[in-house]
C-alpha cells in the first residue's frame, strides 16, 4: 500500500482549516454541484440526491479527520491508497463550495494558476483563495504520488 506523509506548517494551515470547516458546514445539506436529471419523479430525485449527499459528507469527514489532534502535534497528514479516493472527492467538493461562496468575481485564469501570488487577489478573498489552492495542491500530491487507479486491495 502506497502511503504519503505530508509535513505542513501548522501556523499556516490552521487559518485555512477555519475556511474548510465553514465550507464543510455549508455542504452538510447541499451538494457541491447540483444534479440535473431529466426526471419529474421527485422520489427518485430525492433518493439520488440523498445518496450523493451521504457520500459527500462521508468524504468530507475523512478530510477533516486528517487535521485532528495528531496534526496539531506534529504537522503531518498521512494519505494512503485507502483514503485517497475520499480525500480527492472531498477536496473537489470543498473547492466548488469555496469558489461559490467566497471567490466569485475572480478571473478564471487566476483561479487556474496554481502559482498565482496571493497578492494578486483582493485582500478579503485571500484566505479562501489560499484554501482553494491548498486543496488543489493536496489533490495534486495524491494524483502524482498515490495511484487512485490501482485495484482495490482485498479486505484483511
Amino acid at each position: 500500500m502506497k502511503r504519503v506523509e505530508i509535513r505542513l506548517n501548522i501556523s499556516a494551515v490552521a487559518p485555512l482549516l477555519d475556511v474548510i470547516k465553514q465550507g464543510a458546514d455549508g455542504l452538510k445539506q447541499e451538494l457541491a454541484i447540483k444534479s440535473a436529471l431529466p426526471e419529474n419523479d421527485r422520489e427518485f430525485t430525492d433518493t439520488w440526491n440523498q445518496e450523493l449527499l451521504a457520500g459527500q459528507n462521508s468524504d468530507i469527514r475523512e478530510l477533516l479527520g486528517l487535521f485532528g489532534a495528531d496534526f496539531f502535534s506534529d504537522g503531518v497528514v498521512a494519505i494512503d491508497s485507502n483514503n485517497c479516493e475520499s480525500l480527492l472527492r472531498a477536496c473537489s467538493a470543498l473547492r466548488f463550495k469555496i469558489l461559490d461562496r467566497w471567490l466569485q468575481g475572480l478571473p478564471d485564469d487566476l483561479l487556474e494558476d496554481e502559482d498565482a501570488p496571493v497578492t494578486t487577489v483582493p485582500e478579503a478573498q485571500r484566505l479562501p483563495f489560499a484554501c482553494y489552492t491548498f486543496l488543489d495542491q493536496l489533490q495534486k500530491i495524491m494524483l502524482e504520488h498515490l495511484d487512485p487507479l490501482a485495484p482495490d486491495e482485498p479486505a484483511e
Binding site: 480527492l88 466548488f96 478564471d108 495534486k140 494524483l143
Partner: peptide, 12 residues
C-alpha cells in the same frame, strides 16, 4: 466542463 477540477483529476 467546470472551472474547478484540474485536468489530471478529470482524466483519472
Amino acid at each position: 466542463n467546470d472551472p474547478v477540477n484540474r485536468m489530471s483529476y478529470v482524466v483519472m
